[in-house]
Amino acid sequence: MHRETLRLILGLFAIAVGAAAFAWPSATVQVVGFLFGLNLVVTGFIRAALLFFVPDYPLIYRVVGIVFGVLTGIVGILCLRNVAGSVILLLVVIAIGWLLDGLVELFTAIGTPAAHGSGWRIGSGLLMILGAIAVLVWPRLGLATFVAVGATVLVFVGIVQVLGAIAGLRAARRETIPAG
């Protein structure tokens, strides 16, 4: 499967999780923890696998991206294991996952040799990092505020990932079609 196709799937998944959070603003801590934890697990492990199997990134970016991707997945598992934990602990764990995911996105954008969609990746990484910082700076946000912030971050990051993946798929298609 092409890496841009995986990015497209990740973007659509993030949009779906964000939309689900918007659609259910009265969600319980368990639902929010499950949705956001599941997003971290899927995103982290898919990114790690993608960087493991795609050879055209410089080694240092691949190693850092794989480590951060696995850590993101592990943080997601922690969310899924203790979805009934305190709201503040859950918010901090999710914010750490977003921070790691944003760093992976930045590293892969910087390490992309052909620079297809790297601007979109940088934007996506920065959005994740800013969302994480907001939650870490204000960990006592109410659950409703966190759901709104989290859903907004996920939807915008998903949109940016989808647009970047589409740009990458178009560029790859142009490269394979001979100019005639």
Rank of each mutant, 00 (worst) to 15 (best):
V32W: 14
V137Q: 06
F146N: 09
I15Y: 05
L163M: 15
G76D: 01
L10I: 08
W120Q: 05
G11E: 13
A84G: 10
L89G: 09
F36K: 04
G111D: 12
L103V: 02
L38P: 00
L127R: 01
V147P: 05
A14L: 10
Y61N: 14
L59D: 13
G18I: 07
A14D: 10
P139V: 08
A134Y: 00
V29E: 13
R3T: 11
W138T: 07
A172P: 07
T112D: 15
N39Y: 08
R47Q: 08
T72F: 03
A49P: 02
G131W: 04
I159Y: 04
A20G: 06
L50S: 14
A115H: 14
V104G: 00
L163A: 15
F22I: 04
A151V: 10
V149L: 15
T43W: 05
G85N: 08
G18Y: 03
R62W: 08
V149A: 11
G76H: 04
A84K: 11
G150M: 09
V162S: 11
R173N: 15
T108P: 00
G168A: 00
C79F: 08
R3K: 15
V63A: 13
G119K: 05
R121W: 12
G69W: 00
L59Q: 11
L59K: 12
Y57S: 06
R174F: 13
A20M: 11
F68N: 01
V135D: 00
V32P: 08
Y61Q: 11
A148Q: 05
V92I: 15
G33M: 09
V75K: 03
V83L: 09
L80D: 04
L38N: 10
V137M: 04
S26H: 14
G125L: 08
R3H: 13
I77H: 07
I96N: 04
W138R: 01
P139I: 01
C79N: 07
V54E: 09
N82R: 12
L143D: 07
I66N: 06
F107I: 02
G102Q: 05
G85Q: 15
G125F: 00
V162E: 12
E105L: 15
G142N: 13
Q30S: 14
L12W: 03
I66G: 03
L89S: 10
F156I: 11
V29W: 10
G76W: 02
L143W: 10
V149D: 01
V63L: 14
L126N: 03
A179M: 13
I94H: 06
I129P: 03
V147I: 15
L100S: 01
I77V: 15
G158H: 11
P178N: 06
G69V: 03
I66V: 15
G11D: 13
L126M: 14
V54T: 09
G18C: 05
V155C: 07
I9T: 00
G44S: 02
R81F: 13
F107A: 14
A171T: 09
A109C: 11
